[in-house]
């Protein structure tokens, strides 16, 4: 509990610093509104159905993207992790694809998929694939061969071993991968919305607030909410991992 209090004090200290900076003449007031202003605006926005629909749009698209990424990456990871030949053969392709930043694909996705949610979901899936894929492969590398041998002795086949032994023991790593992927996907999602790849969502809200009336308080409201979603996702998935995967 003391640690909790200290954490709150840390955040409070940060807010005070921000308030002072925001009110000081060193920084133009319109560039960095102080937290007192931002939180006032936050309360107003949280009761506005328009803002809520932006938040819902982002969260929904994010969840869809994470599910799709899991559906693609976990089976691929299992195949790549358990069949070395496939892994060696595809290694160069994967190592070349992975570093291509998903945001670099924004222009391409825009012309091919248009300005609907497909674009941002596709790009978020692309970004979320890698952490899940690599953690799954890594988990299979760490698989205890004694477990596999035990299962084999009891007459479990190759597929059986994969589902009864490999997948359960890989689960903690996979969940860690999903947690990392969720954070990355959120960043990509908001970025795509910001770069006009969408007509709804938190990123779009931020962009609109900036380019239209130049309301920096609203920009920061969007930023704070996006950060809060990130914290919730991260802590939620961490809790899931601890609760359900206790081994």
């Amino acid at each position: 509990m003391r640690a909790f209090t200290r954490g709150l004090l840390g955040i409070a200290g940060f807010l005070v610093l921000w308030e002072l900076l925001g009110r000081s003449p060193l920084i133009p007031a319109e560039a960095l509104p102080p937290p007192s202003v931002v939180f006032g605006e936050l309360v107003t926005q949280l009761t506005s159905p328009d803002f809520i629909s932006h938040v819902v749009a982002t969260v929904l698209a994010l969840l869809i993207a994470i599910v799709i990424a899991v559906v693609i990456a976990v089976p691929s990871g299992l195949v790549l992790g358990s069949i070395p030949a496939v892994r060696h053969a595809t290694r160069a392709v994967i190592e070349f694809l992975r570093p291509i930043p998903s945001v670099a694909l924004i222009p391409l996705a825009l012309v091919m998929l248009g300005f609907g949610p497909e674009t941002k979901i596709t790009l978020a899936v692309y970004a979320a694939l890698w952490p899940i894929l690599f953690n799954t492969i890594y988990a299979l590398d760490e698989l205890d061969s004694l477990l596999v041998d035990t299962a084999r002795v009891f007459g479990t086949g190759r597929i059986g071993v994969l589902f009864l032994v490999a997948l359960p023991s890989a689960l903690p790593f996979v969940l860690t991968g999903i947690r990392l992927a969720a954070t990355t996907a959120l960043v990509v999602m908001v970025s795509v919305e910001l770069m006009a790849g969408s007509q709804i969502g938190i990123g779009y809200f931020i962009m609109e607030a900036r380019s239209g009336p130049g309301r920096m308080d609203q920009v920061l409201v969007g930023t704070v909410v996006a950060g809060a979603i990130g914290v919730l996702l991260n802590n939620g998935l961490e809790r899931v991992r601890r609760r359900w995967v206790a081994w």
């Binding site: 200290r6 954490g7 709150l8 004090l9 840390g10 955040i11 200290g13 940060f14 560039a31 960095l32 954070t183 959120l186 960043v187 999602m189 908001v190 970025s191 910001l194 770069m195 938190i202 990123g203 931020i206 962009m207 900036r210 920096m216 920009v219 920061l220 969007g222 930023t223 704070v224 996006a226 950060g227 809060a228 979603i229 990130g230 914290v231 996702l233 991260n234 802590n235």
Partner: peptide, 20 residues
Amino acid sequence: YAGPLLVFLRSIPPPALVPV
């Protein structure tokens, strides 16, 4: 003191701060 603050700051999508 710093932990929770870091968790929050890390979760902010950096492009959202580009306008700032």
